[in-house]
Design a protein around this nucleic acid. Structure first.
Lengths: 336, 336
DNA sequence: TTGTAAGCGTTATCAT
DNA sequence: ATGATAACGCTTACAA
């Protein structure tokens, strides 16, 4: 059997209550403390988190829910979240709900049975509006932080980025470079995030009195093939744009592939303004001009906010935190 | 407070022991069973996994350890693993050890404290040989399944694919298409997996009496930029190859970008034989000829094997399972 | 500050 | 088949 606080207590000549208190940071009489510490050392005692959680119905674990594990954006942020919660001794449980409401319900029940202490949800493509089950769950007294997508009519903590502003500035940047024919390849219509990015696009075009051709607004559903197809269509259209703003990395990759295939030069023949960084893009020449997510900050804010809620601090609930994106102007865009 | 088996017992007019037995599949007297079932329904009872685990020192969770979360291969297999273990009510804990032995040690301790029931490790780039800490851990009586990389001198369950054979056949395929000048862009020298892939390459070349120029063996460290740089070097070399075999998807992507940039046509000017599928590659035209991992099977085998060990079935321990890859001949290779 | 004892929600043993 | 009771390893009143 494993070493318990009873073993430690015995060896140190104190009661197990004293050991417990030591482990939880209460102060002990000097010589007791040293003896307990020594006993822990010698016995190589490891506390049993399961037993610890039983009393307070905690599990010392938080969950990250997402519709799939192949979204690099999600996994980068998850990496940060893990790092931060680990410092306070929380573990990370992953749940893939496959973009399905019923599976999400199952997973949430599953987490409830495990006394999960808090959850972070990336609703992604469909947006949180489609995840109706969340309404029920949010009454369950377990902290929930949403990333990127609010739930209309329901309040919980939310981490956003300045999507509309980012989009506005990206398009404005192109406009200031004398582009007038600017297309956008957007993600999905249901997504709040994409609605905001589209809003920024329209606002910029309007602010500079530029006409938006109907065929310049494309939807690529966040897939590379979507970006590829949209780009081909744009280039074949009667009013081909001189610049394309692509709002996700997979789609950007598809757009680049399409242009390569068409033997169009970036940025000589067409400018590409992408979104986010991901590894394969490192090999694209010239380097992509992009809007970048503050990935670290998103993870930090989400993790810290969740930990605060777990500690019971609801003083500023619900909180919506909007973080700033940054523009990286590189070689894939040029001034006309 | 949450509903417990005591509440259920009271409502059903039986002892809590009876409820527990019901929940664990023991047979009850007919009318007791119905009353328990009804009570569970009415009270919406959810079992407390934490409490359940206390007795048997189980957590009903397995862990997946990997050096980073951005490897699509790992996350695809993790998706399958989650699905399979969830059927038996196990949760999935993720641990990122950042390719660092000390962090791996921390994570393993962390998991031990949580009474994790089993772990699946993707050693990835450096190979398992570099993860010396595993030697200690394997004595801890918790099942460990390794994926892709064995630990020399230590025996545990291992899931492999037929790397050398896959590599041999890919290169042979090119040779049969009259290619003689065939290069390979490999991952890392430390990796067992890459050693095997290199072995297959050499064996195929030798089997057909083809000379291997020294500069045809490149190392891209699994990165896109590595594939990109290697490809540029190959194309600039005194003996440029007519075909390149690239053993990972990120590197393949880099290779394709390099060729696009050099304005070389695939497969007219050069044939590309890749490895694996990943989303952005869907937008590459022509479609890539690749070796494909049996992702589903790897996940299934790993999960089932681990579950068997958790159940205490060590009848065939240690087990090395070698799965077959498949070749997908598509447009990126051609016969000369 | 410390020891004692009750309790967290289960499972498992032992009679019956 | 069932009920009573003792674990499981920890936290936390309560008393001293």
């Amino acid at each position: 059997m494993a070493v318990t606080i009873y073993d430690v207590a015995k060896k140190a000549g104190v009661s197990h209550g004293t050991v417990s208190r030591y482990l939880n940071g209460y102060s002990l009489r000097e010589n007791n403390r040293t003896r307990v510490e020594q006993a822990i050392q010698e016995l190589n005692f490891q506390e049993n988190i399961i037993a610890k959680g039983l009393k307070g119905n905690r599990s010392m674990a938080i969950a990250v829910l997402t519709p799939r594990y192949t979204a690099v954006f999600v996994m980068l942020i998850t990496t940060i979240i893990e790092k931060i919660v680990a410092r306070e001794n929380y573990g990370l449980v992953m749940c893939n709900f496959e973009d399905d409401d019923e599976q999400l319900r199952q997973k949430l029940l599953f987490l409830q049975r495990r006394a999960i202490d808090g959850v972070i949800i990336f609703p992604e493509d469909k947006g949180a509006a489609g995840l109706r089950i969340l309404h029920e769950y949010l009454n369950l007294h377990i902290p929930v932080v949403l990333i990127n997508e609010p739930i209309p009519g329901f309040e919980t903590d939310l981490i956003l980025v300045d999507n509309a502003v980012a989009s506005f500035r990206a398009v404005e940047q192109l406009i200031l470079g004398n582009h007038k024919d600017i297309a956008i390849i957007n993600g999905s219509q249901e997504s709040y995030l994409c609605q905001q990015r589209l809003k920024g696009y329209y606002e910029a075009m309007q602010a500079y009195n530029l006409k938006v051709e109907e065929e310049w607004v494309k939807w690529g559903n966040f897939h590379s093939v979507g970006g590829y197809t949209a780009t081909k269509e744009l280039c074949a259209s009667p009013h081909p744009p001189s610049a394309i703003f692509v709002v996700s990395y997979y789609m950007t990759m598809g757009a680049v592939m399409a242009l390569h295939e068409l033997r169009l030069r970036i940025p000589d023949d067409i400018s590409i303004f992408g979104f986010d960084h991901f590894e394969p893009a490192d090999a694209i020449q010239p380097a992509l001009t992009v809007v970048e997510h503050p990935v670290e900050k998103i993870g930090e804010q989400a993790a810290h906010l969740l930990l605060r809620r777990i500690r019971g601090d609801y003083s500023d609930f619900p909180q919506t935190i909007t973080l700033n994106t940054t523009m990286l102007i590189r070689g894939s865009t040029r001034n006309l």
